[in-house]
Amino acid sequence: MKKYPIYMGLLVMFIISIGCESHKEEKHEERTFQVTNPIYKDTSITKEYVCQVHSIRNIELRAMEKGYLQEIKVDEGQKVQKGQMMFQIMPNIYQAELQKAKAENDAASIEYQNTKLLADNQVVSPNELALAKANFEKSKAEVKLAETHLGFTNIKAPFDGIMDHLHVREGSMLEEGELLTTLSDNSQMWVYFNVPEAEYLDYIMSAKKEEKKEVSLLMANNKKFNQNGIVETIEGEFNNETGNIAFRATFPNPDGILRHGETGTVLMKTALNHALLIPQKATFEVLDKHFVFVVDQDNVVRQREVKVGAELSNLFEVTQGLEENDKVLLEGIRLVKDGQKIKFELEKADDVLAHLDIYAE
């Protein structure tokens, strides 16, 4: 019975010694790192630009005559048709002026006819006839002017659109030129966005500059608008303060989703030809500079700075610092140090890209 504790102690010591030896063996096991090459690809990048959305027509409706606002025939946010009555200014004064002008025109007409009859019989001189005719023409012009003033009391929609906020109420005393509301034609929208000078030059000097560029719109709710737009115009001058120039894209708006004054982000795809690409995870940053580990001919890793151009999803375009035949450490960059010799496996660049969430062709 006394032997059992001795046997148990020896068994425990044996198991511990085996565990220690296996731990030492694991500790000495050499790790194999994954390495890949940079690769040249034709691809595209999507650039984002903050934008302002404007109606293709957005105007202010103002009173052309002074007077009391007798009636408002539309409501805020209402869709109106071209020619639809919107506001009625009390017309009494202008109706009276029209009647007066018509009466004076009738009198001038009679005077002209009488003078013409006398002139035909050589009773009055030709000058008197000319004066009577001039008075008659003047009275006709005054009738047209009175009709125009009366017409200004009926304010109609100049085009199909959506009415904005009312700035006046029924019964208000209006002054000439006073703002009543604004009207927006949202059938198409103009979207303005600013492009840096370098990107403008790339755009304007591209081989496809004669083709109109198609863009998409990311709305404020982070969802894409259901219609694509076309870049149609570029402003004539750069902003000296920002170094940008304004582009304008036109978007159809059949469902009326977009409204004047909205904001969003224009997404514009740009071709990236023969770009040298590496996975973003193969890089690390030190003081805003990008670095990679390159494996030399002696299997030693060397830290190297690279210049990054365009940024794609999970990829960087390298403009300086790497060649296509360089071996770049793909994973485990935090587990090695500069000058360390490693064991590695080289993965084909195409296979690496195939497992990344990217678009490359």
Rank of each mutant, 00 (worst) to 15 (best):
G243S: 06
D298K: 14
E97V: 01
V295Q: 03
P196C: 14
S125M: 09
H355T: 09
K144Q: 15
A349H: 02
V12W: 11
D351T: 10
Q297I: 06
L174V: 06
R31I: 00
S184L: 05
F159A: 08
V306M: 09
N253L: 06
S139Y: 03
F251R: 01
K66V: 00
K209H: 10
P252Y: 05
I16A: 15
K3R: 07
M90T: 07
V308K: 03
H23Y: 14
E235G: 11
G332P: 03
A107N: 13
T182G: 04
K133D: 15
Q340V: 04
A103Y: 14
I245W: 12
F14E: 11
E147D: 06
E262K: 06
H23I: 04
I56S: 09
E48F: 07
G256L: 10
K47N: 11
L287S: 14
Y203H: 09
M219W: 14
R31A: 02
E232N: 13
H149K: 14
D350Q: 13
D120L: 06
F152S: 00
E25W: 06
A354Y: 12
V294S: 05
K337D: 02
L150W: 02
I89G: 00
L11C: 09
I15Q: 08
D288Y: 09
F87N: 09
R31C: 00
K41E: 10
P5F: 13
Q95K: 12
Q34P: 00
V352R: 07
G339Y: 01
L218C: 09
P254L: 11
